[in-house]
Design a protein around this nucleic acid. Sequence first.
RNA 1: GCGGAUGUGGCGGAACUGGUAGACGCACUAGAUUUAGGUUCUAGCGGGGUGACCCGUGGAGGUUCGAGUCCUCUCAUCCGCACCA
Length: 864
Amino acid sequence: MARYNPKEAEPKWQAIWQAAGAFRAPDAQAAAGKPKYYALEMFPYPSGRLHVGHVRNYAMGDVIARFKRAQGFNVLHPMGWDAFGLAAENAAMERGIHPKTWTYENIAVMRDQLKRLGVSIDWSREFATCDPAYYGRQQALFLELYARGLAYRKEGVVNWDPVDNTVLANEQVIDGRGWRSGAPVEKRKLTQWFLRITDYADALIDGLKTLDRWPDKVRVMQENWIGRSTGLRLSFAFAEATRTEGLSVYTTRPDTLYGASFVAVAPDHPLAQEIAAENPAAAAFVAECRKGGTSEAEIEAGEKTGFDTGLEVIHPFDPNRRLPVWIANFILMDYGTGAIFGCPAHDQRDLDFARKYHLPVRPVVLPPDADPATFAIGDEAYVGPGRIYNSDFLDGLEVEAAKAAAIARAEAGGFGEGTTVYRLRDWGVSRQRYWGCPIPIVYCQACGPQAVPLDQLPVVLPDDVAFDKPGNPLERHLTWKHTTCPQCGGKAERETDTLDTFVDSSWYFIRFANPKADAPIDRAASDYWLPVDQYIGGVEHAVLHLLYARFVTRALADGGALEVREPFAGLFTQGMVTHESYRRQNGDWVEPHDVKVIQEGETRRANLIETGEPVVIGDIEAMSKSKKNGVSPEEIADAYGMDAARLFVMSDSPPERDVQWTTGGIKGAWRLVNRIWDEFDSQPALALDVSFDDDPRAIALVRSTHRLIKTLTEAIEGFRFNSGVASVYAFLNELRGLPASGATPALLAARAEALNVLARLIAPFAPHLAEEAWSRIGGARLVAQAPWPTYDPALVAEEMLTLPVQVNGKRRGEIHLPPGTSAAEAEKMALADPAIQRHLEGLAVRKVIVVPDRIINIVVGPAS
RNA sequence: GCGGAUGUGGCGGAACUGGUAGACGCACUAGAUUUAGGUUCUAGCGGGGUGACCCGUGGAGGUUCGAGUCCUCUCAUCCGCACCA
C-alpha cells in the first residue's frame, strides 16, 4: 500500500499525454467519420498568474472535453491568450518593462501553470492576440469590413477616460465611469473608427431565440442592451411661421397623442443650442443640465427640471391645439430624436414634469373597469391596457389598435412614419493606445484615408517606443507613422489608434479551427469545427464580448468567410471562487496562509500565525488582490495536488453558482483522492471470467456500477458536476463495505469490473489519479484514450424496491417488491401490511392510489 | 422603477416530468487506533416528544389522494439595466 503521491504522478502523466499527443485535435480533412465537438473556455488575459477562478473555469471545460473525447467525438479544446491591453502598458510605465516583454513573460508563466492543471488542451494551436501572425490577419478582416462599409470613420462625441487616456465604447462605461479605471468619463469630440453593429441589431436579437443552450439571463441582458422598440417618428410643425422646419419626435405611444400637453427637447438638442445662443436664461439652464447630468445625486433624485422656450408647436391631429416647447433635463439626446411629446397621464416622467410646471394632465386611455366620467390621474401615471377616449378618431380602440391607427394617420398625412429604434450604438473601436492591433489605414493629404494593401500586412507595432510621457507612443514615434500613400505614392501618415481589444476576442475562436492558415479564416476548417459546442466563462462578458463576437461572426458569414452565424451554440456561465477575508485590528487585510483559524465547539476565531495577534474573520467575497483573500493554485498543488483542487471546485456548489474555498473542503477532496486510490491499490490481480450470479453482493455491485455510469453521464451532460462527484462518494461508500480479498471469485470479478469503470468515470474530474488507477489495474493504453463506459438499462433498475405506503398522505409503512409489480398486487400487499392495518382500524378505505414502482396512498374515511 | 434569478439542517447543497425531504460533503459530538499533534476508522447528527407520534423546504392562502416542486398574494437577498420616450 502506497499513498497516492500527486507531486510525482501529475507531472509524470502530463508528460505522457504530451508525448502521446493525446489531446491533439485532428485536422478538419482528417476528421471525417466522427462527430466533432468544440469545447472552449474564454481565453485568459495574461496577467501573470493563474488564480483559483481560472482553475474552476478550465477544469469545467476539461471535464466536458475529456468526456466528449471518451464518447468518441473529435474534440477541439484549444487555448490562447487575450494578450493586448492596458495592463501591459501600465507595467511599462510603472516598471520600465516593455509591454511585449511583460506579456510574453507572463504567457510563459501562465502556460506552465495551465499545463500543471492537467487540462487536456491541444497546445499545437496556441496563439496570442499580440502575435503579428494573428493581428495581421485581424487587420485583413478589418479591411474587409471597411471595404463592405461595416467599418467607418466619423467624428462624434465619444466617451473619454481621462485616467487611461483613451476612448471607451458605450459598453465599457459603467455608471458614467470607465470600466477599468473607474474614473468619471468625459465627453469629447473626436474622429473615430466604428464598426456598424447597428446594422445587425435585428439579426442579433432574432438570433437569440435560436440559442436554446444559453442562460436566459444572458439572452435577456443582450436583448435589453440592444433595446429595440417600435413606434412613430413624427414631425410637429411650429406655430411660429418663421420656423419652417418641424420638430421631429419619437414615441412608442402614438395612441396617447391626444393626451399630449407639451413637447420637450434634450439640452443637447440643436434647438436647445440655438435658443441658448440667444437667451442667457436658456443657456444657464442648459449649462446646469450638463453639470448635473453626470452627477449621481441628481440622477438618484430623479428630479425633473425644464425651461419653457416660449415656442409652440401645432398638434398634428388637431390644428387648433398648441403645445409649449420645453427644454427638459430628462430627455436624452442620443435616443430617438432627442425630443419627445409629453403625455403626463400615461407616462410617469411626463407626469412628474407636468405636476411641477402645472401643465395639463389629460387621460386618454381608460382602464378596463373605469368610469370615463370619474377616472382621473393622481400621482401615478396609468400605463396599463384599456380603451382610448378623449381622442377623436382613436376613440374606442384598444391600445395596440390605436397605435396602428395613429401611425397610419401620420403616414397618410405625410408628417410621420412608423419606425424601429435601438438603444444600441455603433461600436467605437479606436483606442489611443500602443499595445493593441494597429488599424491598417494610412491618411494621404491628396487621396484621403487609404487601406493598407493586403501584401503589406501586418502593420507591425514598433518595438522602440517610450512610455515616459502620457499619451500614445505611436503618435510620438519618430518614423513609424510616416509612410507613403498606396494610391499616389505621396507622403502619408499611418493611423496611430489601435483597435479595442474586444475586436481581438471577437474571432479568436474561429482562428483556432486552423491557426496556421495563411488566410485569416480557413473556410473548410471553420465549417467543420464551428460553432463552439460549449463555451464557458464568466457572466461579466454577457454583453461585451459575447455580443461583439456574435456580431463579428455574422458580419464575416455575410461576407462569405463562414457558414455559421451564431458562434456559440452552448454557453455556460460559471460562478466565482470566493473565500473568507481576514483583517487585522488595524484594518489591514491579511492573506489566508498567514492566518490560523481555530475552531472552538461551534464558534471560530482566527490568529495571525506569526504573532498570534487575533484577526477578524470577514465576509466571504470573490477572491481579489485588494482583499488579499486569494489562494494560489501553487499552494494548493503543493499540498494536495491539482486533482484534489479540481474535484473540490467542482463538487461543493453547482457550477453556475459561486463556490466558497475552504480548508475543510479541499481536505475533503484530498480524502476522496486517497480513498479512490486505496481501492485501486488494494485490488488483487484481475479476477477470472466468472458468473456474478454466484454471489448476491456481486450482482448488487454490478448494478451499482451501472447505476453510477448512468448518474455520472447524466450529471456531466446536465452540468451538474457537484451531483456527479457526490455519486462517486456514494459509490465509494458502498465499495468500502466490501472485502477486497478473501471474497468469492464472483465478488472479486464484480469489484474488478467496478474499478475498471470507476477509473474511466473519474478521468474527466481527476485525470492524473485516473491514469494512475488505470495503470494499477492494467488498463489498456491511457485512460485518456479509453472509451466512456456504457450502462445496461436492465442492470440500472433496482432488483427490489422499497415503496412507501401512505394513509391519507402520511407515511405509515413500507413494502418491498420487485419492479414491475402490478398495481393490484401492490395494493394487496400494502393493505395486508400489519403496520398499515393498524392505521386502518375502524376506518373505511375509500380509495387506493398506486403509482407503480413509486408509492401507494390509501385514502380512508370514517367507517359508515 | 423595469427585468432576471435565488430562498431547503450549524454550513455548501441533493430531490428526474408533483410521489419516502435533507443524498453527498463540510463542521460538530461520542468512541476506537495512533498518541505530541494531525491522519485513519466506527457511530450519531432538522426540531420536539424521546414507544413505532407530531412539526418541518422564507411567509400566508389555494389546487391535489399526495406539494420543496403547480397556482395566487407576500417578504427577503443577489445580479443586470437604469429618466430609452
